[in-house]
Write a protein that binds this DNA or RNA. Structure first.
Length: 424
RNA sequence: GGGGGGAUACCAGAGCGGUCAAAUGGGGCAGACUGUAAAUCUGUUGGCGAAGCCUUCGGAGGUUCGAAUCCUCCUCCCCCCA
């Protein structure tokens, strides 16, 4: 199965320029996707692009990742309603390093002929003067052409600065540069990038009469219409200090049935037959959520590690399985800590507990877990608050009897929100 | 330059002298149900509390026993005519 066929059955193709498939069949080529270094970690939205490159690499071609050190200074106006906040040089430098580390885990960067390569367009843009650029590059693309792009049209009413308008041309130049220096014939990206990519192929045609190609994948959507990759706590990051492996695993476990079928094709390398068999099993016993578990396992191991996956599973078992006060009490301190790794901690003075403290006070003003006593009382009344897996009364006094491992109290709000009080 | 309308809790939006901590809808949170799902239903959604009290309706003053509601000034938004 060739690259395009592979992506097709996985539902990862939104648009592809005619001839792309033929090119990849007959030649060894490099292809690239661009990543904006807006943060010092990738998030799961980026994962789609990474998977495109992964498949590309598996198909024997060379993946290039272009980190937009230069374009990141500008900001892509595509389909955004407002002018973007510009990032400082130092910030981008820092982000770049972090992203590089993450990518090393996801793609093969050495030991193979078609090793992935990370590039920064700042390297070839920084010494390119404005005058040279508009003479050499700007000359070839008309403003009319650039304005016809949907991404620009959308902004004509609210306005966009020249800086943002020029973005398209910068990105097109990247493609040209890679075409000339890295034998790069294909640019891939999300469907919102189609306009920018085709400006690139157009530029290549006009400057050197070359033929380059474009391939985009659909923007990932959720069946309920919500934004993909967002939780109530914001983005789902690949960086374990921003999103713990436990939270990461949980994100995928909580995906809806419909989305699971879509996502398992996009985010795992499982073969079609295996996925079909999983789906069959899933449909027979939907409550077992076989698809979600397979998806979550695969991707957590890919992004983090086998060990991280295991401990995240253990944590899930304690938190959602038949975890009781007794099972909590038997946990070793090390185990307890690893399970609640990503759970917010709230320090409290030992004296307070030793002297005994009203639970309402402890949970609000003393620890700061909740912002008002009223909220704590309401939760208790509704049965939505548990200490060490047990419901409590509003008027109980918390003392050392409540401590797990002599140091911790597990606070639970509803089914999914945990907090740990730590005695200092 | 002239005329008119508006600013209310997370958002939208009622209220137009006391019964207003402020209707209703959305969102959020929690409960039941369930598959750590969806849908549905229920409760809750300023703070402290036993009652009750305290701070809130763009900002600053004023009228009144009493103001989100009336008056004056200020700030910001929208519409119409030039």
């Amino acid at each position: 199965m060739n690259f395009v066929e592979e992506l097709t059955w996985r539902g990862m193709i939104h648009d592809v320029m005619p001839g792309t498939e033929e090119l990849l069949q007959k030649e060894y080529v490099s292809a690239y996707v661009g990543i904006d270094p807006t943060a010092d970690s990738l998030h799961i939205g980026h994962l789609v692009s990474i998977m495109l490159l992964k498949h590309l690499q598996l198909a024997g071609h060379k993946p290039l990742i272009l980190v937009g050190g230069a374009t990141g200074l500008i900001g892509d106006p595509s389909f955004k309603s407002e002018e973007r906040q510009l990032l400082s040089n130092e910030q981008i430098e820092h982000n770049l390093k972090a992203i590089k580390n993450q990518l090393a885990k996801l793609l093969d960067f050495d030991q193979v002929d078609n090793a992935a390569e990370l590039l920064n367009n700042y390297d070839w843009m920084k010494d390119y003067t404005f005058l040279e650029f508009i003479r050499d590059i700007g000359k070839h693309i008309s403003v009319n052409y650039m304005m016809a792009k949907d991404s620009v049209k959308k902004r004509m009413e609210t306005g966009l600065s020249f800086t943002e308008f020029a973005y398209q041309l910068l990105q097109a130049y990247d493609f040209l540069y890679l075409y000339q220096h890295k034998n790069c014939r294909l640019q891939m990206g999300g469907s919102d990038q189609w306009g920018n990519i085709t400006t690139g192929t157009e530029l290549i045609r006009r400057v050197c009469g070359g033929e380059a190609f474009a391939l985009t994948c659909p923007l990932i959507t959720k069946s309920d219409g919500g934004k993909f990759g967002k939780t109530e706590n914001g983005n789902v990051w690949l960086d374990p200090t921003k999103t713990s492996p436990y939270a990461f695993l949980q994100f995928w476990l909580n995906v809806s049935d419909e989305d699971a079928k879509k996502f398992i094709r996009i985010f795992t390398l499982k073969k079609e037959a295996e996925i079909r068999s999983l789906e069959e099993k899933h449909d027979k016993a939907p409550h077992l959520r076989i698809l979600q578990k397979a998806l979550a396992q695969d991707i957590t191991i890919y992004v983090h590690s086998e060990a991280d996956y295991q401990s995240a599973c253990d944590a899930s078992e304690i938190l959602f399985g038949k975890g009781t006060k007794e099972s909590l009490a038997t946990l070793s301190e090390a185990m307890f800590l690893s399970i609640f790794e990503g759970v917010p901690r709230y320090p409290i003075a030992r004296d307070l507990i030793q002297n005994g403290v009203a639970c309402v006070d402890l949970l609000s003003e003393q620890s700061g877990i909740f912002t008002s006593k009223g909220e704590v009382r309401r939760l208790i009344k509704e049965g939505g608050l548990m200490l060490n897996k047990e419901k409590i009364n509003e008027d109980v006094t918390i003392n050392t009897d409540y401590l797990i491992n002599h140091r911790y109290i597990l606070v639970q709000k509803g089914k999914k929100n945990y907090f740990v009080i730590v005695i200092q």
